[in-house]
Amino acid sequence: MKVTINGKEQEVSGIKSVRDLLDHLGLDCSKVAVEVNSCVIKKDEYDQTAISHGDVVEIVRFVGGG
C-alpha cells in the first residue's frame, strides 16, 4: 500500500499499525511524535492505531538539548 510519510509517498508492505511503521523505519518510539491524518497519536495507542492505504503520516524525531 501507499502511505505518505513526511510529505513523501512511499510503498510499504506488511504494516498494520503505527508501531509496525516505526519499527520498519527503525525509529525509537520514545523519541518521536506521530501524527496520522492530522491527528496526534499517543504512544500507548501505537499498537492499536491502524495504518491504511492513502494515510498521511508525519513523524518528528527529536534530539536532545535545550
Partner: peptide
C-alpha cells in the same frame, strides 16, 4: 528527546 516527544504528544 524523550521528554520533548512526550510533552508535544
Amino acid at each position: 528527546a524523550e521528554e520533548k516527544a512526550r510533552l508535544v504528544e
